[in-house]
Design a protein around this nucleic acid. Structure first.
Length: 565
RNA sequence: CGGGGCGUGGCGCAGCCUGGUAGCGCGCAGCCUUUGGGUGGCUGAGGUCCCCGGUUCGAAUCCGGGCGCCCCGACCA
C-alpha cells in the first residue's frame, strides 16, 4: 500500500543554502535521502525504491552474461590488503579489533574475491567464471561532496571475472562492456564509455562510463565522430598556431628581464603564447631529473606523463632548479639543458619557437626541436576544446559523473594472492582477472542532474520510485475520492507502481509535491474533470497534459506508460 | 593538505560587531475557512543558543581550546 497519507515522503521547501549540486538539493527536497554525517547518507523509502530499481537492472544484465550473485563482508583482515600492497592507501579505512588485530573496511573487493577464488577455482575446467555482489563500500574520502555524488559509504555492484588467459579476459571484458551498455541504456541516462586511466587498481586497460552533467567531477573529451575519453588520458591533434614567428638559422639570445611567465614573454616579444616552449622540470622515480616541455598554450597532463614515463614524476623543487639549470623557473629551456628532454608531440615540426635560455632574464628565439636539441617525443599534454580527434572531428570537453568503471586487472591480484589453476597439460598458471564496478546511487544522482527542471525531478521511467502518482482532489467522501480509489486499484492490478496522494492537502501542495518527486506520469482526479467524465494526466518530462475518458482510464494510463521515455 | 564559511525550537534564518527579556518565516497541534497550482484567520506547543574552559555581577554575544558540517582548490577506484 502506498497511500501518501500513510507513507514517509518528507518533502521540504528549503534546503541549506550551501547545497550546490542539483541532485543534492532535489533529492533532499523530494524526501528521498537524508544526511547522517559527512559523506554518509540515508535512503528514505522512496529513495530506496529507486535504488532498488537500479539494482534490479544490474542484476538482470549481469545475470544475463552469466554472472553469479554472492555476498562478501565489508570488514576484512588487514593481512589480505598487505599482500596486495594496498594497505597503505589513504582512502582505506583501518581499524583494530579488541585483540588489537588490524582490519580494514573494504573500499572494493578484489582481495576478498581473489582470496576465495584462489581456493575454489583450481582447474581450467573451473574457468571462466563471473562472480558479483551488491555491497557497501567504505572510503575515507578526503572530501565528500555534492550529496550522493561522492560519499564515504556507498553501495556498489562489483563483478569480477576469472579467466585462463589474456584472450579469456578480453572476452569477459567484452561481455561486461555489452552488459554495461545495456544497463545505461535501460537506466535512461545520457552516457559515454570513455577510455580511462587504470589508477590505483593497476592492470592493463580500463574504461569508464560517464554521464555528462554540471555537477560532474570528471572531464571527458568528446567529438561528433564518436571520440570519447577521460581528459586524464585523452589524446588529440592540436590546433595550429596562428602568427608563428619566422624561423632563424640558429637560436638567438634575447633579453627578457622580469618576464617569467608565458603571457609576459609572449607579450614582450609580440608572439602568440603557442610560439613558446613551456618547461616543466621534474624528478622521476628511479630515473632522476628530466625536463618536460610542451607548447606554451598547452598544459602538461601529469597522468599522461606518468604513463609515458612508466614511473611517477614530481615537480622539481626550486633548489633543484638552481642546481641543475642555473636558472629560476620561467627561464629554463631545452637548449643546452642539463637534463634529458621529453617533448610533447605537439611541438614536433615547429620552428621559430621561443624558449628559456637557462640563464636569468634571457630567452632564446628561433628555437627548433630536433635541430637545437634532441628530445624524446611523447604525448603528455592535456587536450583542450578545439583540438581534433583521430577521426578528424572537433573535440569538446564536458564535465561528467563517473557512473561505472571496468578494468582489465590481468594478474595484478592473482599473483600476490597466488590465484592459479592447472591447465590441460597439468601446468600451474595464473588466473587472469577483470573487475567491473557500478554505483547505483550515482546513476540516480546523474539521472536527476540530467533531467531535472524548475519544478523538480523527472525520473527516467525505469528507475523512478513509482511509475505513476495518482492525485485525488476534493474532500474525503466526495466523488473524486471514490473514483481515485477505484483507479488506484485498477492501476495497481494493471502492474504499475502507484503512489496515491490521498492526503487532505490543498491541490497546489499536491501538484508541487508530485512534480518535485518526479514520477513519470501523474494522474489527477478532481471535480472539474469528472463533470465532463474525464481524468487528467501529465507526463512529467516536458509536462505534456492530456485528458482521458473516465471509462477505460486505467488502461489508457497503462498504455501511455508503455510509451514513455 | 591549503583557503573560506557556518553551528541559535523539526527545517531555513536573524540576533553576536556594541554582553543584560531569545526572535522571524516555514513546519507542527487545535478550531474555523478554503479544495484544480504551496488558501486565509485565531489560538498554542516547542530552544542544553555544538561542547569544554576562561573573562565578567551577568555570556548566544568577548577570549582560548575542541568537535561537527558546508564550499573552493589539491586529492579521488
Amino acid at each position: 500500500m502506498t497511500r501518501l497519507s500513510a507513507y514517509l515522503l518528507p518533502t521540504v521547501k528549503e534546503v541549506p543554502a550551501d547545497a550546490e549540486a542539483i541532485s543534492h538539493r532535489l533529492m533532499v527536497r523530494a524526501g528521498l535521502v537524508r544526511q547522517l554525517g559527512a559523506g554518509m547518507w540515508t535512503f528514505l523509502p522512496a529513495g530506496w525504491r529507486s535504488h532498488r530499481k537500479v539494482e534490479q537492472i544490474l542484476r538482470e544484465e549481469i545475470d544475463a552474461i552469466g554472472g553469479l550473485e554472492m555476498l562478501m563482508p565489508v570488514l576484512q583482515p588487514a593481512e589480505l590488503w598487505r599482500q596486495t600492497g594496498r594497505f597503505a592507501i589513504d582512502e582505506l579505512f583501518k581499524l583494530k579489533d579488541r585483540k588489537g588485530a588490524d582490519h580494514v573496511l573494504a573500499m572494493t573487493h578484489e582481495e576478498a574475491i581473489t582470496y576465495h577464488m584462489t581456493r575454489e577455482l583450481r582447474s581450467y575446467r573451473d574457468l571462466p567464471r563471473i562472480l558479483y555482489h551488491i555491497q557497501t563500500k567504505e572510503r575515507d574520502e578526503p572530501r565528500p561532496r555534492a550529496g550522493l555524488l561522492r560519499t564515504r559509504e556507498f553501495i556498489m555492484k562489483d563483478s569480477y571475472s576469472f579467466d585462463r588467459d589474456r584472450e579469456g579476459l578480453d572476452a569477459s571484458y567484452e561481455l561486461h562492456v555489452k552488459a554495461y551498455d545495456r544497463i545505461f541504456d535501460r537506466s535512461g541516462l545520457e552516457w559515454y564509455r570513455v577510455e580511462a586511466d587504470v589508477g590505483m587498481m593497476g592492470g592493463h586497460g580500463a574504461h569508464e562510463y560517464m554521464a555528462p552533467c554540471a555537477a560532474g567531477e570528471n572531464e571527458v573529451a568528446l567529438s561528433q565522430a564518436g571520440y570519447a575519453a577521460n581528459v586524464e588520458v585523452a589524446s588529440a591533434s592540436p590546433r595550429r598556431i596562428e602568427g608563428l614567428p619566422e624561423p632563424l638559422a640558429a637560436p638567438e639570445l634575447v633579453e627578457t628581464p622580469g618576464a617569467a611567465t608565458i603571457d609576459s614573454v609572449a607579450g614582450l616579444l609580440g608572439v602568440p603564447s603557442g610560439a613558446l616552449i613551456k618547461a616543466f622540470p621534474v624528478v622521476v622515480d628511479g630515473r632522476g631529473p628530466l625536463l618536460v616541455i610542451t607548447r606554451g598554450d598547452h598544459r602538461l597532463n601529469e597522468i599522461k606523463l606518468q604513463n609515458a614515463l612508466g614511473a611517477p614524476a614530481r615537480a622539481a623543487h626550486a633548489e633543484e632548479l638552481e642546481a641543475l639549470f642555473r636558472a629560476p623557473a620561467g627561464y629554463i629551456g631545452p637548449v643546452g639543458a642539463a637534463a634529458p628532454v621529453v617533448a610533447d608531440v605537439a611541438l614536433r615540426g615547429l620552428r621559430g619557437l621561443v624558449a628559456g635560455a637557462n640563464q636569468p632574464d634571457h630567452h632564446l628565439r628561433g628555437v627548433e626541436p630536433g635541430r637545437d636539441f634532441e628530445p624524446e617525443w611523447a604525448d603528455v599534454r592535456a587536450v583542450v576544446a578545439g583540438d581534433t580527434c583521430p577521426a578528424g572531428s572537433e573535440i569538446r570537453i564536458e564535465p561528467a559523473i563517473e557512473v561505472a568503471n571496468i578494468f582489465k586487472l590481468g594478474t595484478r591480484y592473482s599473483e600476490p594472492l597466488g590465484a592459479g589453476y592447472l591447465d590441460e597439460q597439468g601446468e600451474e598458471r595464473l588466473i587472469w582477472m577483470g573487475s567491473y564496478g557500478i554505483g547505483p546511487a550515482r546513476i540516480m544522482a546523474a539521472a536527476v542532474e540530467q533531467r531535472a527542471d524548475d519544478q523538480g525531478i523527472a525520473w527516467p521511467p525505469s528507475i523512478s520510485p513509482f511509475d505513476v502518482e495518482l492525485v485525488a482532489l476534493g474532500k474525503p467522501g466526495e466523488e473524486a475520492r471514490e473514483v481515485a480509489e477505484r483507479l488506484y486499484e485498477e492501476l495497481r492490478s494493471g502492474g504499475l507502481d502507484v503512489l496515491y496522494d490521498d492526503r487532505d492537502q490543498s491541490p497546489g501542495e499536491k501538484f508541487a509535491d508530485a512534480e518535485l518527486l518526479g514520477c513519470p506520469l501523474r494522474v489527477t482526479v478532481g471535480r472539474r474533470g469528472l463533470e465532463t467524465g474525464e481524468v487528467e494526466a501529465q507526463v512529467r518530462r516536458g509536462r505534456e497534459r492530456f485528458s482521458l475518458p473516465l471509462e477505460g482510464a486505467a488502461e489508457a494510463v497503462i498504455e501511455r506508460w508503455r510509451r514513455l521515455d
